[in-house]
């Protein structure tokens, strides 16, 4: 295994900029590379992405491999997997990190199997064992009810996907030096078996959940689509985004794009107000990084009170209007 050396992170680009996960991967990758005393490489894959390579150096990469090809404009497993397979064969990293994002969830398993390894998906903690020098991979399991720690003993590379917002962001230092290396994709249009025929946006008006400082979120107990107006009214007062746990999304009360949880969005606002949410592990997986959780629930035994800093037992229909009124008073005063 001596020929495998260094850490490679797989960057992501969104709307022509490095996605936040790229900075988190560069942070995590840098820590691991320092612990091992090896180089940190970054893959920058996409179309028209060359201009971002210097930024990756400034954020900590020693080498940036740029794969710039029109066929890589959007993520497709059929194009990204073979490109990264070739790149991994060239770089021969001992560790590969990918984001646990829409792209990474699809990319990492196929890439891992193609390279003869396996991925530890959705890691929240990564470290190097001081003795064995193996990558210690910690990830939530059983819907977040437990954590599990894994090692990849002999398969290489050791591969992990990293949960969004689980790591700090790398700090930019424009004086950092690094090498930018172009890498040919070598793709043909016929390689793409799956064809995207349409993209449908289901964005909700107002503050984006992922960027919101305050989120008002509703659960099964809200009872229906119309009752979400109670949450919307409070959200207006607080300048908050409105989210939901899985049941309201599955029941079609709100679009699934506002789902907070293990299989939805992971949010880390300053304030998360959970309304009529019981607090299943899979929901907490999406909001437990919030600075402050406030729970409003009829059931005093609800699990959500175990993770909340503030709580109120009562019917949200009575609580929210009075609470919103008082907040308005306090915030204007």
């Amino acid at each position: 295994m001596a020929e495998y050396k260094g850490v490679l992170i797989c960057g992501e680009v969104a709307d022509g900029k490095l996605a936040a996960i790229s900075q988190e991967l560069l942070y995590a990758g840098r820590q691991l590379a320092n612990a091992l005393g090896v180089e940190l490489s970054a893959a920058l894959v996409g179309s028209g992405v060359n201009g971002l390579s210097r930024e990756m150096v400034a954020l900590g990469a020693d080498k940036v491999y740029v794969v710039d090809d029109p066929l890589l404009k959007d993520y497709q497993g059929d194009s990204y997997v073979p490109v990264l397979e070739k790149l991994c064969q060239k770089v021969m990293p001992e560790i590969v990190l990918v984001g646990q994002t829409s792209m990474g969830r699809d990319l990492a398993p196929r890439l891992a199997f193609r390279l003869g390894t396996v991925a530890a998906m959705d890691c929240v903690l990564l470290g190097i064992d001081p003795q064995s020098k193996l990558l210690i991979q910690t990830r939530p399991v059983y819907g977040g009810s437990a954590l599990a720690t894994f090692v990849t003993e002999s398969a290489r590379p050791q591969m992990a996907t990293v949960r969004v917002k689980a790591m700090s962001q790398a700090e930019r230092d424009d004086s950092r030096k690094g090498e930018v290396i172009p890498f040919a994709a070598g793709l043909q249009a016929s390689d793409l078996r799956a064809k995207v025929v349409n993209k449908v946006k289901e964005e909700v008006a107002g503050v984006k959940l992922e960027d919101a400082k305050v989120i008002v979120s509703g659960g099964r107990g809200v009872g229906g689509s119309e009752s979400f107006s109670y949450l919307n009214d409070l959200a207006k007062v607080l300048g908050a985004a409105v989210g939901a746990s899985r049941p309201p999304c599955d029941s079609g009360w709100v679009p699934s794009s506002v789902q907070v949880g293990l299989t939805g969005k992971i949010v880390t606002p300053d304030l998360y107000i959970a309304v009529a949410i019981s607090g299943s592990s899979q929901h907490l997986a999406g909001c437990s990084g919030s600075k402050c959780i406030v729970a409003i629930n009829k059931d005093p035994e609800a699990n959500i009170f175990k993770v909340a800093q503030f709580g109120l037992v009562g019917d949200y229909r009575k609580v929210l209007p009075a609470f919103a009124q008082k907040c308005k008073e306090l915030m204007s005063g």
């Binding site: 995207v196 025929v197 993209k199 449908v200 289901e202 794009s257 969005k265």
Partner: peptide, 8 residues
């Protein structure tokens, strides 16, 4: 994350 893609 922001909706869905129709893929064949």
């Amino acid at each position: 994350p922001d909706g869905y893609e129709v893929i064949e």
